[in-house]
Design a protein around this nucleic acid. Structure first.
Lengths: 185, 185
DNA sequence: TCAGGTGCTGACCGATCGGTCAGATCCGCA
DNA sequence: TGCGGATCTGACCGATCGGTCAGCACCTGA
């Protein structure tokens, strides 16, 4: 009965986060209102704004773990060069995409707007470095096109396979990424 | 002076279409207001709704050529089987993506919502047939993952290369698609 | 000259958005 | 018993959304 009543106050907080993640993934960030989230949890819209400073703050908290992992990946890529960096980028990004496919899915097409926000400003630069690594640090158009197709394709796709386990999705994504990125030099 | 004054009334109409296409491509459909479009053209919001029955109607007219080409592609794929259908799908889709990259870009992430609309309802089924053709009509998860990555990657990417000519973008996209889709059978 | 259609507009509508605020309720603790 | 903080709420705010409408300016053909 006193299970983890140690911090009972966070129950609603977590419920709201979960509900927001579910909603965002289906109708997008702009397409989801605080009313929608509140209704799902069974509280008032004011309660949502009691637990989160703003709608943006809610999104930030939701994306924080994924962004942390992305920053770690960025650092790992920077520690390598050439083909090793490329492999690290592909492996790491696929891993990130699989683990956070729900969070990535909810950004579907709202990246441009969200990147404007200060909290997400550096994501833009990280993703540019990711594309460069995927392209093998070549500036040939073919290499850049292939890099963007794979990057965007994985990001856009991973959210569609919520039903199959990580261990099956990861190798499938890695295989197609490796095949697509074998750019002739 | 009497150039093509034959139909001078369509000037604003076309300007509005062009402005809407530009805006939608940058800020998305939901993220663009009729005010924005009107301001770009230099007319009032009411004028936009004089030329188009609704915001949705504007989008429909904007997408009509691309949708027609997509339907033609669908028919062409249905006329083939196996590897031929797959090749027809890849070639045709890349061609469509290159030619209508602006229009495709503006649907970024708003597909889910827009497909709900009756006018776009059948696009859902066409895209499913496209994925199936890309996957070589296999239901193996690896094949379906690769198909979706390539399809979504191309759709998501083509709008990023508005500055390079069709003749350069098309072979680059085709190359990465062929590489990625060489699924081992 | 004037009737009628076309193109266009400002004012306005109801709905919904994110966000604020005063206060109600409930709690552990002195 | 009562105080204070945490949790939650309904009412409300200004802004913006897509859309409506009466009417103005202009051109054209009878």
């Amino acid at each position: 009965m006193l299970e983890d009543m140690a911090r009972p106050t966070t129950a609603t907080h977590d419920e709201l986060l979960a509900a927001a993640a579910r909603r965002f993934a289906v109708t997008g960030y702009k397409g989801t209102s605080l009313q929608d989230i509140a209704r799902d949890v069974g509280c008032s819209k004011a309660t949502v704004l009691y637990h989160f400073a703003s709608k943006d703050a809610l999104l930030c908290e939701l994306m924080a773990p994924a962004i942390t992992m992305l920053e770690e990946l960025d650092a790992r890529i920077a520690a390598h060069t050439g083909a090793e960096a490329r492999r690290a980028a592909a492996d790491g990004f696929v891993d990130l995409a699989v683990r956070f496919r729900r969070e990535i899915a909810l950004l579907r097409g709202e990246f441009p707007d969200l990147l404007q926000q200060p909290a997400f400003a550096h994501i833009q630069q990280i993703s540019e470095r990711l594309v460069a690594a995927f392209a093998g640090f070549s500036d040939r158009p073919e290499a850049r096109v292939a890099a963007l197709v794979v990057l965007a394709g994985i990001a856009e796709t991973c959210g569609e396979f919520l039903d199959i386990p990580d261990e099956q999705l990861r190798p499938a994504l890695l295989a197609v990424a490796y095949r697509a990125l074998e750019v002739t030099t």
